[in-house]
Design a protein around this nucleic acid. Structure first.
Lengths: 203, 203
DNA sequence: TTAGTTTATGAATATGTATTCATATTGTCA
DNA sequence: TGACAATATGAATACATATTCATAAACTAA
């Protein structure tokens, strides 16, 4: 395919500016709390112009969510490909998750609103698209746990539950950090320790 | 105070029926996806009559969320009061959480939409009321971990992080169960094992 | 049974905002 | 520079639905 022309590049840049403005607003006010007028003002376009880029409001939101799901999925999958043993892979996975999360706070907010809340998922079928990517990640993580169990690195448990437990632990700490930065400091090692060693001493 | 009259009792019963109908709809369609007309139809009242019980739609939602927060909070706090050592308390806490959760699936759905998503919390200040109760629970749980650490039952870690980790683990498994019942069976013991022993063998 | 009172009803109103489109503005090329 | 095309604008439109309130229905007590 050929180079995009100046005009095309400009169109894409403007479209990106609309997305950025919308992201900020959706993250702070939610989908229903944000009007097209607000997005237009923030992006320094008229409402009419927004419709040059997107057929309707939902499409803006949907685009953001899907971009986000893609970005997160790609990053996490790559992390699991780290060479080394299973513990190594987990370590990279946590570190990556922390980095991606902190670099994309606004995206995390709308992603959560969509996956946990009941904003639009039912209507738009966004749900399925997002969940597929997350399931794919969890399946790969499960495979790592399954391998680790075979090697007697991990206790025998349903690998999927271990994957869920592992992923939710980092998620929880990150959300805590998002709400109260610095109140309960932790790093990748804290998460790994708690997850791998457990809370109690062996009896 | 005196007995409520027949009329008062009937009023309260009808109000309860409205709440029940609204709960079902909000859980399936979210706040914005549910109209007053739908609630009226489901409760077998006219729209006008709904306004005899609640000044506006938000108040119905708010009432449901607050009822839910109270119910969950009371149950969980009571569980932490269990006599016995720290491990005992955790065991009862998980069992209670599982029971409350499974007995109140619709309430769990709207509670999540409200706490995780960005439905109304900003506008109504619901957020603060809910979070206070949850924080209170987490603080009490932290105290248990702090005590357990002093007794050398638990590893030395920020007790609040342990509380978060513990609570989110059961939450995660329950949500998985809600989405795919039976796919990855678990019980209170599974949760305790993973949390207390950790995933890996000691090195 | 009926006059008076209370309560329920749902059509009409009010409001907010997503979307459209006639017009203005900007850009292009001779 | 001016005529034409492409693009941007935002006031007007369309629509959805929360809320109101004049009226109907149900109830109460003499």
């Amino acid at each position: 395919m050929t180079q995009p022309s100046r005009k095309e590049r400009e169109y894409l840049r403007h479209r990106g500016e609309v997305l950025e403005a919308a992201l900020m607003l959706f993250a702070r006010q939610g989908f229903h709390g944000t009007s097209m007028q607000q997005i237009a003002d923030a992006a320094e376009f008229s409402v009419g112009t927004l419709y040059k880029f997107f057929p309707h409001k939902e499409e803006i939101y949907k685009t953001l969510i899907e971009e986000t799901a893609d970005r997160f999925h790609a990053g996490l999958i790559a992390a699991l490909e780290t060479p080394g043993d299973e513990i190594n892979k987990l370590q990279t996975a946590v570190e990556t998750k922390i980095r991606i999360f902190l670099d994309n706070l606004d995206r995390v907010r709308i992603y959560f609103a969509e996956t946990q809340g009941a904003s639009l998922n039912v209507k738009t079928g966004l749900d399925a698209a997002i969940k597929n990517r997350y399931n794919d990640y969890l399946e790969r993580l499960s495979a790592i746990f399954a391998a680790g169990i075979k090697k007697k690195i991990f206790h025998k448990q349903d690998p999927y539950l271990l994957a869920l437990a592992f992923d939710s632990l980092s998620m929880t700490f990150l959300v805590e950090h998002m709400d109260h930065p610095g109140r309960h400091p932790f790093d990748a090692e804290t998460i790994l320790e708690i997850f791998l060693q457990g809370a109690s001493f062996k009896k």
